[in-house]
């Protein structure tokens, strides 16, 4: 027989809210402390350049096929929907420049950041989380090697520098995808699509887009490392860490995107 469960009292609810808030601030404090130690750790990056390049290859270069595939479709859909929105109001010759703005300022950095959150942040959390629960982090410490220096610093800076590169390539391939849709499916000539772009092109847009990419690169790597280092339990803990890293990276990307947009534009 199931006994009726009493609803939580106000004090129980408040206590739960308080505990959740405290956990959140403790977590935010730990992530900030890790960020500080990683920033200080840049002075040892030259010594650990082999680790840095390994991570740049793994996190950046190996993400290229996925980023380019997604970039192609992002460009294609932006052009297609741009056509839908402009039709009847704005001449179609402005499709190229409006697509470029949308991609360079927003879609390229944000969507690439979200892909990297899924691929890189989750993979860093899973890798470091597994190392944590199998005592490999303790083993590093016991050898007198700082896990932050050896594991977090190369991953952070590799991702920080590779994400703008990936975003640049994604922007480029997205414009190719958009051009394909415009010329093959929307009946525009190539000249119609490209000719207005130099008129409205502003190099500041590119710089702002890349600034976003730097921040998203930092956020995704930081969350992967922080969540990985704080993993507890066995396989279940690693699974949860992967999800947490991905979810927090996405949230922070979207929040920082909004804040950066307010400052940059």
């Amino acid at each position: 027989m199931n006994l009726p469960v009493a609803p939580p009292t106000i004090s129980q609810t408040l206590a739960k809210v308080g505990r959740t808030a405290l956990d959140f601030f403790a977590e935010a404090g730990a992530a900030t402390m890790l960020l500080f130690r990683i920033l200080v750790g840049i002075k040892g990056l030259w010594k650990d350049r082999k680790l840095f390049f390994e991570q740049a290859l793994r996190l950046g270069f190996n993400s290229l096929p996925l980023v380019l595939l997604v970039g192609t479709f992002v460009g294609a859909v932006t052009a297609w929907q741009g056509n839908y929105q402009l039709k009847g109001y704005v001449p179609l010759q402005y499709l190229g420049s409006s697509t470029l703005k949308a991609i360079v300022i927003e879609l390229g950095p944000v969507l690439t950041g979200l892909i990297i959150a899924g691929r890189v942040s989750a993979s860093i959390a899973a890798e470091l989380g597994t190392m944590k629960v199998t005592e490999q982090i303790d083993a590093l410490e016991s050898l007198g090697i700082s896990p932050i220096r050896y594991l977090a610093v190369p991953r952070f800076y590799a991702n920080l520098l590779m994400l703008p590169v990936l975003v640049t390539l994604a922007d480029f391939i997205a414009m190719m995808g958009a051009s394909f849709v415009a010329t093959v499916l929307l009946g525009m000539t190539s000249a119609m699509f490209w000719n207005q772009i130099p008129v409205f092109f502003d190099v500041y847009d590119v710089i702002a887009g890349l600034a976003k990419a730097f921040v998203f690169g930092a956020v995704t790597a930081l969350m992967g490392c922080h969540v990985g280092f704080s993993t507890r339990g066995g396989a279940e803990g690693v699974g949860l860490a992967t999800i947490r890293a991905f979810v927090w990276s996405c949230i922070l990307i979207l929040m920082s995107d909004y804040i950066l947009a307010m400052f940059l534009f």
């Binding site: 190392m131 199998t134 490999q136 083993a139 590093l140």
Partner: peptide
């Protein structure tokens, strides 16, 4: 230190 799980870097 020899760890319980060996803790080799896999």
């Amino acid at each position: 230190i020899v760890f319980q799980s060996a803790a080799l870097f896999d």
